[in-house]
């Protein structure tokens, strides 16, 4: 099966990573070329010698692999399935919510390549890895379930949300946390965490609607966690 994918001359770092992953673990066996009737590939004639071949998938369901929360998992998806749908209905990751299904509420926010992305407006094939000629690597997806460690240690942003009551009904919360945690990580990697401003927080969550009105507490949680005071147990908000 590896051979089936290796004909691309544009294989970069990420592609090699995919080959390694798909060569190990149970997902790989699902991706044997024989099980991929729907994935066709045709080397494109000129004019673009450097281009990857064209891949055709579907319209019926095809086996793919996704890289979610650091694990490679197998799924059978149709080209029209959104990432939000596949995460929730196939992978059991129902922390990602659907509020509008149209990119307008942010409830479905996950990270793709570390960047907050609307999972309802992303097709699962956009991030999936496929086998066959022209197959390609899955792009890493992080959902709310992947933010805290397996041991249950919360991300500092999650801790701060709890401490400052930055959640009410909680339905927008996973998306809100994903937007905030991305901001937190970005500022941290720049060594700028302590300089986090209220305006930056508001901008970062401008695409996350909260019908319950948690915004002021979200801002408070973010500012205090950025300054290292967000994890007070009780009454952190006062």
């Amino acid at each position: 099966m590896v051979a089936a994918m290796a004909d691309s001359d544009s294989g970069g770092v990420s592609r090699r990573g995919f080959l390694i992953q798909s060569g190990t673990g149970s997902a790989a066996s699902l991706l044997g070329a024989a099980s991929l009737p729907a994935v066709r590939s045709s080397a494109q004639a000129a004019p673009a010698p450097a281009a990857a071949p064209i891949t055709e998938i579907g319209p019926g369901p095809v086996p793919v692999q996704l890289q979610v929360n650091g694990k490679t998992v197998a799924a059978r998806i149709e080209p029209r399935d959104t990432l939000a749908h596949v995460l929730r209905e196939q992978l059991g990751l129902s922390g990602t919510k659907i509020g509008c299904d149209r990119g307008a509420c942010g409830a479905c926010t996950v990270w793709v390549d570390g960047i907050p992305t609307p999972a309802c407006m992303t097709l699962a094939l956009d991030v999936a890895g496929t086998a066959g000629k022209g197959g390609r690597a899955a792009r890493p997806v992080t959902t709310i379930e992947g933010l805290s460690t397996a041991q249950g240690t919360l991300h500092p942003v999650q801790d701060a949300f709890v401490a400052h009551d930055a959640l009410q009904c909680g339905f927008c919360t996973p998306g809100m946390v994903m937007s905030c945690a991305a901001l937190y990580e970005r500022k941290r990697s720049q060594g700028q965490l302590a300089a986090l401003s209220e305006g930056e927080v508001r901008e970062a969550i401008a695409g996350n609607l909260c019908r319950c009105g948690t915004y002021p507490h979200v801002v408070r949680a973010m500012l205090s966690t950025a300054k290292g005071t967000g994890n007070g147990k009780n009454g952190g908000s006062r």
Binding site: T143, I144, E145, L147, L154, G170, T173, P174
Partner: peptide
């Protein structure tokens, strides 16, 4: 709160 911030809820 932790159920809601982790997606467990």
């Amino acid at each position: 709160g932790s159920d809601k911030v982790t997606g467990r809820a």
